[in-house]
Design a binder for these strands. Structure first.
Ligand SMILES: [Mn+2]
Ligand SMILES: [Mn+2]
Ligand SMILES: [Zn+2]
Ligand SMILES: [Zn+2]
Lengths: 150, 150
DNA sequence: AACCTAAATGATAATTATTTTCATTTAGAT
DNA sequence: ATCTAAATGAAAATAATTATCATTTAGGTT
């Protein structure tokens, strides 16, 4: 008897990948959180429903999803990576991050994002020309101390 | 017989640290390169003049220099950190980076930097207020493909 | 519904970056 | 020259990620 596949499963099929419980679950986890989860954190959530799924599969799945553009890999300089659904596949809009260097909290902001994007487009275009560099994405973060840590 | 200490050595003393061959050499290496070296790369340059100095010392020294604000630790998402003299202690001005995701090349740019800084100050101030977040620094990079890799 | 096979997985080992430990050495003050 | 806290090196430990390989499974075919 074949497993049921949900919305994500069909999307995976559309990309030519198989729909598996681990893959669907990982996507559901990413969809239902505001946090920026590390592989280990995703793994521990996965384990609740599917304890047989291994950390290796989490890594492999995240890799695949990043390559498909479904998920974004973020590196905030902690020595480990974090993941979120990419702009296009999430309900959130384009945003950047505030990172608390005391407690590690990561805040999404999209205030002034239109001005930001406009500004970034402008310099991306200038830089692209000057350095003959094909810019495909940008990463912006502000480090400091959050509310609770000040 | 006491070792001679150079410019960097005196600066270290000023900070209350001892002037040691490894520390001076690491600072000289950082000063004389345009690259963004990893600890391993710094270690291999250190080894040419002082093969007895270990990788651990390189890590420890970099940590110390980052805490002093003399050196900046940069994370371009490669799973390892890279270092450069910080703005204040280098002859270079404030800049951001273009990162080639094919060959790994990192380009410093400081074009439009005044506009950038002005813009950043503006949003930093607004974000700081809105999220009650004390912003202390920003990190901006553009990913893409360089000249040679296109 | 049973069958087939490439794709996916899990367990394990291997790698890589970084940190810790601890016994020894050394910078720099006295 | 002497002294001692700070710095160091060698080695082991930790943490994140990747590779290997034998086994399982998704999903197309009969
Ligand atoms: Mn985010
Ligand atoms: Mn730089
Ligand atoms: Zn905080
Ligand atoms: Zn390149």
């Amino acid at each position: 008897m074949k497993r049921e596949c949900g919305r994500w499963g069909y999307r995976l099929r559309g990309f030519g990948y198989k729909c598996t419980p681990g893959r669907e679950l990982i996507l559901e986890i990413l969809e239902s959180t505001d946090e920026h989860l590390s592989p280990e954190e995703i793994y521990s959530k996965v384990s609740i429903e599917h304890p047989e799924i291994g950390l290796t599969t989490v890594y492999r799945t995240l890799d695949m999803l990043v390559n498909l553009g479904v998920v974004s890999k973020l590196d905030f300089g902690e020595g480990k990576s974090r993941y979120e659904l990419s702009e296009h596949h999430s309900h959130k809009k384009h945003h950047h991050h505030l990172v608390c260097n005391k407690c590690g909290k990561i805040i999404d902001y999209s205030d002034f994002i239109n001005e930001e994007i406009e500004f970034l487009n402008k310099i991306e275009s200038k830089l692209g020309k000057k350095y003959n560099f094909k810019i495909s994405s940008h990463f912006i973060k502000f480090d400091g101390m959050c509310n609770d840590c000040i």
